[in-house]
């Protein structure tokens, strides 16, 4: 890329300046922490919704200009077993429910998903886990106005309180169990044996675009 830019500047007799903006590393999964998070997710149990909230979710789904082309069940093919995929379909009217109000089966995977996040860089330096809770209607498009609309609604409020409880319960598990921390650390050491190459150069300064 840099050489293409240099060549373009030579062809046009212009000056070239390169500016690093940001960089993120790939995410390292941790099955020990994922299992703890999954258990707590089941233990606390997801929120349920009022008829008004479900109507709102249906209306938002009806307004999607470009919804993802795969259902939440289809996205997990190759990771979950056929029975687990079937469970998701059974629980969600074949992924047609307005809100996916149950806990999805879980298996750790190393499969690379499209998209990037700077949580990846954290996961190279310490055992890290992330959960999703249903803050948006089924099959919501990412980065959409529908998500903005839902994010300050009672559906969003329920999702964030549920997430807070799951994270708190995981932290309580870790604070009370050196053994759990040790297992998570051992897996982390193994998965990060290749070593972290920070994508951010030493002299780079965070830049707002």
């Amino acid at each position: 890329m840099d050489r293409i830019a240099l060549a373009a500047s030579m062809m046009t007799e212009t000056e070239l300046e390169e500016r690093f903006i940001d960089g993120t590393a790939e995410t390292i999964p941790n099955s020990v922490l994922e299992s703890a998070a999954y258990d707590n997710m089941k233990l606390i149990g997801p929120p349920s919704y009022t008829p008004e909230e479900l109507d709102f979710a249906r209306a938002l789904i009806g307004s999607y200009e470009a919804a993802p082309d795969k259902t939440e069940a289809q996205q997990r093919e190759g990771i979950l077993s056929a029975e687990e995929i079937q469970y998701i379909n059974d629980m969600s009217d074949n992924c047609r429910s307005p809100m996916l109000d149950f806990v999805f089966p879980h298996r750790t995977s190393g499969r690379c998903e499209m998209g990037s996040t700077d949580v990846g860089d954290v996961s190279w330096q310490t055992p890290t886990v992330q959960v999703n809770t249903a803050a948006f209607p089924n099959n919501c498009p990412g980065h959409s106005w529908q998500n903005v609309s839902c994010g300050a609604s009672s559906i969003g409020d329920k999702a964030l309180l549920y997430a807070g409880k799951i994270i708190a319960a995981c932290a309580i598990d870790l604070l009370g169990s050196p053994e759990l921390l040790k297992k998570a650390r051992a897996e982390f050491e193994e998965r990060t044996a290749a070593g972290y190459e920070c994508p951010v150069p030493q002299d780079a300064v965070p830049t707002a675009l």
Partner: peptide, 18 residues
């Protein structure tokens, strides 16, 4: 350890790489 979450459309534990 580091713990976090992200709003989504399902209740699930995130796995895999990015």
């Amino acid at each position: 350890a580091a713990l976090t979450w992200h709003p989504g459309s399902a209740n699930c534990v995130i796995t895999g790489s990015s």
